[in-house]
Design a protein around this nucleic acid. Sequence first.
DNA 1: CTTTGTTAAGACATTATATGTCGCATAAGT
DNA 2: ACTTATGCGACATATAATGTCTTAACAAAG
Lengths: 322, 322
Amino acid sequence: MDTTIRYLEMLQFLPRYPRKKSLSEIRDHLNACGYKVSDRTIQRDLKKLETPFGLICDDRSIPFGWSFSQVARRGDIAEIDENEALLLMLVRDHLHEIIPLEQLPRMNLMFNRATKVLNANNHEKIHGWKNKIKIKPAFMNYMRPKVESEISSSIIECLLDDKQFEGEYRSRNGLSKHIYNPLGLVSHGVSQRLICYRKTNIDTILHLPLHRFQSCQPLKDDICLPDNFDLEQYLEAGQIEYLYQKDIQLKLQFTHEAGQHLFETPIDPSQEIEITNDGKNLLVKATIHDTETLRRWILGFGVKVKVIEPKYLVKEIAMGNP
Amino acid sequence: MDTTIRYLEMLQFLPRYPRKKSLSEIRDHLNACGYKVSDRTIQRDLKKLETPFGLICDDRSIPFGWSFSQVARRGDIAEIDENEALLLMLVRDHLHEIIPLEQLPRMNLMFNRATKVLNANNHEKIHGWKNKIKIKPAFMNYMRPKVESEISSSIIECLLDDKQFEGEYRSRNGLSKHIYNPLGLVSHGVSQRLICYRKTNIDTILHLPLHRFQSCQPLKDDICLPDNFDLEQYLEAGQIEYLYQKDIQLKLQFTHEAGQHLFETPIDPSQEIEITNDGKNLLVKATIHDTETLRRWILGFGVKVKVIEPKYLVKEIAMGNP
DNA sequence: CTTTGTTAAGACATTATATGTCGCATAAGT
DNA sequence: ACTTATGCGACATATAATGTCTTAACAAAG
């Protein structure tokens, strides 16, 4: 029993492959954790754990170096190295803008572990890790609406189990109670939308922000699926983001400065860029859907971009009509 | 030894608190895993693991229900419930657009585990989980540049260890080799930028996209920090995203339709909304920085928004000058 | 080339732990 | 009130874990 915990403590100390730990390092760590065992025992433990946990022993030089194989099944037990820990902190900040982390306890634990790793090694450093990473949103940063995680997780449960639920929904017109058939969940910017229909109106599929639900009472009844419902198709049809036209041959003329970034981060795999004859502008072509998002993006560049094709879009953008 | 693996197998089967598993469920699971042990043994195991792992035994009714406490230290071992698994899939898709997942092996393992959970329970369902969730970007969706994860993790290591490195950088003007002092890492949209300066030019702090580095040779020398370097301050000064003016009193007039979303997802905590006298428009006020991002956002609404204040911004936007 | 110190690993005795079985008490269902 | 299911204490036994001693291999230093 005590042995089991010691095994775990040891496994959590072993890094992933390129890195490795020697017997003496492992011994020191276990001693620090309050386990007084002989070196021989640790050697035997490692041998025992080797196969079931996919450990690797680098025996090319002495002392041997132990680590988790990169393909180890339970590699999530392994030590988080500083490198990964720092990236995890970036991920945490990113996610924080989208999803409340209370809904992801497991991820939270991981972030806490990563924080500990970084803090532990921090005093050796010239300047601290917290001052080394930051998120800078590249688009407007809306504030995330507050969600009652009990209600939303109850709704997600119904969605998963294909069950109807009775819920109160706060719309502009006030609070109303309906029976809902949940069909899908779409993460759209900072809000999550439930794709569903109300039992009283089976023909209209709605997409309602999750945070507007004020209650959720799961029901025993299975949902009724509309014939051939497909979430991807539903979204492709431009339900959440207005779709003006599919697959247009877009041709934009950017000033060199404004379009520069498209070389490295294209808007679509089909994108091609030409430099105009005078060398001052960029001609960007792509086959893409004409959506509200696209129009707003184009408008955002103001006079620094001109729509060349399609013709109808030239007019719409000139009119400032996203 | 075999016992230890069985413990783990059992712990991975136990859910987090509100949910619970009975002895018979645990026994069936262990049998399915190939462990033939008596019920008595399992009972004793649970008692033994109770304290070190923060397990909870709900003994209010028989059969007892076992689970991980919500504050359990090693709660990441616990079973992933379907609910969380589905959210994890959303998170995965979100992250995929920003960061290559190969750089986050641990997170990848977690996603794989979540996938297994969802697939395992999928056949019982009317329509599959893959058709229940989707990401719909709310802004233009740039494609993520390809990064050589070896180079970038080597650079991040130098950043963490406060070490200089020699690197080849591909700029518009070609490939050049310099010695770099890494100061910080900023995640900016789909690309990551290294805040650093070159040894040959200590006065200019650069922000270079990580994916443009073609090599990284870590050096033994510690970095030299500019006096009082602070990443937050650096970014606040508008280095990555152009800052025109700090803390302006922004006043915008939206059409009701275009500004509607700001009620639920404000652009800033200071935001206030008034409905105009005729009821057709929304007056949105906020104290906010005047940045390139802000201007592009405003321009994106085209004729559906008018800048009221500050005066200088009225002109700039009218000129289509982001 | 030899010496010295460090590390890995086999052998074995000993201790500690894990396990099955039986029996009894108590709670839930009929 | 009866039956069945569940939890748990007790005990014997088998199994696993551990420390100690020893030998062999290797690396670094003289």
